[in-house]
Design a binder for these strands. Structure first.
Length: 426
RNA sequence: CGGGAUGUAGCGCAGCCUGGUAGCGCACCUGUUUUGGGUACAGGGGGUCGGAGGUUCGAAUCCUCUCGUCCCGACCA
C-alpha cells in the first residue's frame, strides 16, 4: 500500500478527550474516529489489525471443530422474555420498536438467539456436541463509556456457544475451549493469565477470565509467579488451573494457598471470558434433545467470549513506547514500512516495494514528499515491527532495516532486506 | 445517576474577568528552500465562537435554558 493513497490521518497533537495511552495512540495513529460517546469507526489501519485478529481466532476455533455463523445484531425482545433476562439485563440493553411496534433489542450478547437456532435443529444427541461462534458487533449501553475502544458501547466480539449432551461432556468442551484460547492468544503474540472468575449474571459454576498484563489495566490481579516460568507444554487448562490466579475482587489473602513471596500482583486487561452454565437457557427456552437412552434432556451449554476491538486497545497498552505503538509481529497491520528519503531514489524504492509484494509481504510504502523527520516519526508512531529506509547508501545498493522494538539498525543489500523480512515473519 | 470539568478552524489552544462583529501553533493550498529525525521563508484558504432565548446601541465575552463530550464514583467484555 502506498501511503500517498492510504487514509492514515496521523496527528502530532494529543486529543483532549483521550486519557489513556492506547486511546491516544489509536487516535494519533489514525486508527479510529469517534462518532459519538463509546461508538467508533475503525479506519484502514485498525481494520487491518481487526482482520488479523479475526483470522487468528477463526483458525484457532476451526481447529477444534467450532463452526462459524453470523447471527443478527438486532433481536426480538420475545427471546429475552422467554429466557427471563428481559427485565434482568437492565438499561445496558438497548431496546426499541420497529414500525409495527414490535419490541426489539440490539443484542448485548447472543445466548438467546443461538439457543433459538439450536432448539430448532438439534434434536438428537447424535448431533452433539456442537460449538457455534460468530465474530460480530454487539451493543451495551454502558453507564459511562471510557478508555476508547477498551470500554466502548459498540464493540466487536467473538462469541462462541457450546451444546453438549451431558455435564461431563460440557466440562470437556470447556477445557477444549480453554486450551484453544491459550492457543489463540499465543498466535496473537500475547501472554495472558487465566483467572478463576465469578460467573456473574450469566450464571453457572465454572468460569475463567483471560487477562493481558498492562500497567494501566482495569483490575488488579494476584497470581503465582510460576506463571512467568511456564514451559510451552505447561500451557494447558489442567496445569494452569492448579496455579493461584484471581482478580482483586476474588482475592482472599487468608485463602490464598501460595507463600507470600511467590504471590505477584499486577494490573490486567480482560480480553476473554468463558463460562459453563449448564441448562440455564436450554431449560428456560425449552430446548429439548433426545439422549442416547431416548430420554428428553436439556443440553448443557457454555459460552466463550473474546473482545476483539478491546484487544486492539489491550495490545497497545501492553506494547508501546514514547514514540508510539509497537505491534507484535503476529497482528501488525503491515509487515514492513518502506521509507524513501530522497526523490532521487524513487526508482529504487519502487523496485524494492514491488519485490516485497512479489514475496507476498505486506508493505506500507511512504512515497510521499514529506520531510524525513515526519516520515520517521509517522512510521514509529504506527508501530510496524520493521522499517526499511532508503537513503544515500542506495547508490551502493544498500538499504537500512530498523527493528522498531529494539531500535537496532542493519545495513544490507535490497535482496537481503527482502530475505530479512521474510525470515523475521517465518 | 451523584460529584467535577469543558465546548472558539480538521487537531491542540488563547481571547471571556474589565462587551465594540476572532487570534496563535500544527494540519491544509501555492512558490522557493531543505534532505538521516516533525527544515526554513513568503503568500493563501478555512471558523461568527455547541444550540436556543434574553440583557444591551452592540454579545465569543453578561444572564437563563438546553445539547454534546470528558474525568472521578456505582457498573461492566
Amino acid at each position: 500500500m502506498r501511503l500517498s493513497s492510504f487514509l492514515l490521518p496521523v496527528s502530532k497533537n494529543n486529543p483532549q478527550d483521550a486519557q489513556i495511552v492506547s486511546h491516544r495512540l489509536m487516535i494519533r495513529a489514525g486508527m479510529i474516529y469517534q462518532n459519538t460517546s463509546g461508538i467508533y469507526s475503525y479506519l484502514p489501519l485498525a481494520q487491518r489489525v481487526i482482520q488479523k485478529l479475526d483470522h487468528i481466532i477463526e483458525t484457532g476455533l476451526n481447529k477444534i471443530g467450532c463452526q462459524r455463523i453470523t447471527m443478527p445484531t438486532i433481536q426480538p425482545a420475545s427471546l429475552w422474555i422467554e429466557s427471563g433476562r428481559y427485565g434482568d439485563y437492565g438499561k445496558e440493553m438497548l431496546k426499541f420498536e420497529d414500525r409495527h411496534d414490535r419490541p426489539l433489542v440490539y443484542g448485548p450478547t447472543h445466548e438467546e438467539v443461538v439457543t433459538d437456532i439450536a432448539r430448532a435443529y438439534i434434536k438428537s444427541y447424535r448431533q452433539l456436541p456442537k460449538i457455534l461462534y460468530q465474530i460480530h458487533w454487539k451493543f451495551r449501553d454502558e453507564i459511562r463509556p471510557r478508555f476508547g475502544v477498551m470500554r466502548g458501547r459498540e464493540f466487536l466480539m467473538k462469541d462462541a456457544y457450546s451444546f453438549d449432551e451431558t455435564e461431563q461432556g460440557a466440562r470437556h468442551t470447556y477445557e477444549k475451549m480453554f486450551n484453544a484460547y491459550l492457543d489463540i492468544f499465543k498466535m496473537m503474540g500475547l501472554n495472558v493469565i487465566p483467572l478463576k472468575a465469578d460467573p456473574g449474571p450469566i450464571g453457572g459454576d465454572l468460569s475463567h477470565e483471560f487477562h493481558v498484563l498492562a500497567d494501566t489495566g482495569e483490575s488488579e490481579l494476584y497470581y503465582d509467579e510460576a506463571f512467568h516460568e511456564l514451559q510451552p507444554q505447561d500451557m494447558t487448562m489442567e496445569k494452569l488451573t492448579q496455579l493461584y490466579a484471581v482478580a482483586d475482587d476474588q482475592h482472599d489473602p487468608y485463602q490464598c494457598s501460595i507463600p507470600k513471596e511467590r504471590l505477584k500482583s499486577r494490573r490486567g486487561i480482560e480480553v476473554g471470558h468463558i463460562f459453563y452454565f449448564g441448562d440455564k437457557y436450554t431449560k428456560s427456552m425449552n430446548m429439548i434433545t433426545v439422549n442416547s437412552k431416548g430420554e428428553p434432556i436439556h443440553p448443557q451449554m457454555g459460552s466463550y467470549g473474546i473482545g476483539v476491538t478491546r484487544l486492539l486497545g489491550a495490545i497497545i497498552e501492553s506494547s508501546h513506547d514514547a514514540q508510539g505503538i509497537i505491534w507484535p509481529k503476529e497482528v501488525t497491520p503491515f509487515q514492513v514500512g518502506l521509507i524513501n528519503l530522497k526523490e532521487d531514489h524513487k526508482v529504487k524504492a519502487d523496485e524494492l516495494y514491488h519485490h516485497l509484494l512479489d514475496h507476498h509481504l505486506s508493505c506500507l510504502y511512504d512515497d510521499t514528499d514529506e520531510g524525513i523527520g515526519k516520515k520517521f516519526s509517522t512510521m514509529d508512531l504506527i508501530g510496524l515491527p520493521l522499517q526499511i529506509i532508503i537513503g544515500d547508501r542506495i547508490q551502493e545498493n544498500l538499504v537500512e532495516i530498523k527493528i522498531r522494538h529494539t531500535g537496532d539498525r542493519h545495513i544490507m543489500s535490497m535482496t537481503d532486506a527482502v530475505k530479512f523480512v521474510e525470515d523475521f515473519y517465518m
